[in-house]
Nucleic acid binder design. Structure first.
Length: 307
DNA sequence: ATACCGACCTGTCAGC
DNA sequence: TGCTGACAGGTCGGTA
């Protein structure tokens, strides 16, 4: 479901709600597909850890954790419980953030919870009395009493934990410079649409934003990447950044079931110029938008505006 | 080394 | 009403 703008929106929303929380206990469902790491390892890593940051890498959500109380000498269980509410402890969070940044003395206590939402995954904060939805695969009880739940009907999403820095592969499309961008696609015979979806090149661009970026750049999705001129690659480079930035500003695209960490829908779907508009008139030239399948994915384009 | 394609899942919707 | 097939924001592994 979610591409970079949706994952970014969710990560920002979660960061606002759960940084500083301690994960008191973890429930994991019986379905095995969503778990990339062993359930016991996930539970052991999450439980009694404090959430110090939530961020996005490509389409992954990375939840940075430190062992609750680990920034100090080991505490007894009783004392640790007293430490579990970070609110009201001024100056506590900045200390932990600094520790998470690279204090080797606490390396062993740092970990990351990695969440990939697949097509239909959601990561949301709920009140504990809220009904547990069908397809809920993980529930984290937080020190504030609220629950962080992972719900995913199609089970394409994945949960894992990492002890060392998570390596997402690929380059962030919002950060890449033109020279690097040109180098990424030079010499590739694959259709540019397929190359844009390859997460080992750019990480975070999915089907919607690939189509929307190619439209804005005036490039047909079937064009071989290697056939693009420097001018075209430059337009594509700008188009991707613009499309992603605009989508983030509007909270992402809600097609059928995407909602952010608050359960709110995004609005970028109202700005789509080709995605999901097969047969409708191009907003620039009125030509009917075409839909073709490239590498198994629906691809939408204007036959007149895109060369 | 690359690139395509089915498989992995459930839900929804159009058509009959 | 209900059946069938196509399709959905993603990724992986096998095969060519």
């Amino acid at each position: 479901m979610p591409e970079l703008p949706e994952v970014e929106t969710i990560a920002r929303g979660l960061a606002k709600r759960v940084i500083g929380e301690v994960i008191e206990s973890v429930w994991l469902g019986q379905k095995k597909e969503p778990l990339k790491s062993p359930a016991s390892e996930i539970a052991a890593t999450l439980e009694q850890s404090r959430i110090v940051n939530v961020r996005r890498m490509g389409k992954h959500i990375v939840v940075d954790l430190v062992r609750a109380g680990a920034a100090r000498t080991p505490l007894s269980a009783k004392k640790r419980r007293a430490h579990q509410n970070p609110r009201g402890k001024g100056g506590h969070l900045p200390t932990l953030r600094h520790v998470a940044g690279g204090d080797t003395r606490t390396t062993q206590s740092k970990a990351q919870w990695i969440v990939h939402l697949g097509m239909t995954g959601r990561l949301q904060v709920f009140d504990p009395q809220a009904e547990v939805e069908k397809h809920t695969h993980a529930i984290l009880k937080l020190s504030s009493g609220r629950e962080l739940r992972f719900v995913d009907p199609r089970r394409f999403g994945r949960l894992s934990v990492a002890k060392s820095e998570f390596e997402a592969g690929g380059v962030e499309p919002l950060e890449i410079d033109l020279e690097h961008f040109v180098r990424l696609f030079r010499g590739r015979k694959t259709p540019i649409k397929s190359a844009l979806l390859n997460q080992k090149l750019l990480r975070g661009v999915g089907n919607i934003y690939a189509d929307e970026s190619l439209f804005r750049a005036g490039i047909r999705p079937r064009r071989r990447a290697a056939s693009l001129s420097r001018e075209e690659l430059s337009r594509l480079h700008s188009a991707i950044k613009e499309v992603l930035a605009e989508a983030i500003a509007l909270g992402g695209s809600s097609i059928s079931d995407y909602v952010d960490a608050d359960g709110e829908e995004g609005f970028f779907q109202l700005q789509h110029r080709v995605y999901g508009r097969e047969g409708e008139p191009c907003l620039v030239c009125k030509t009917q938008i075409k839909r073709v399948v490239i590498a198994g994915r629906s691809s939408h384009y204007c036959p007149k505006c895109q060369k």
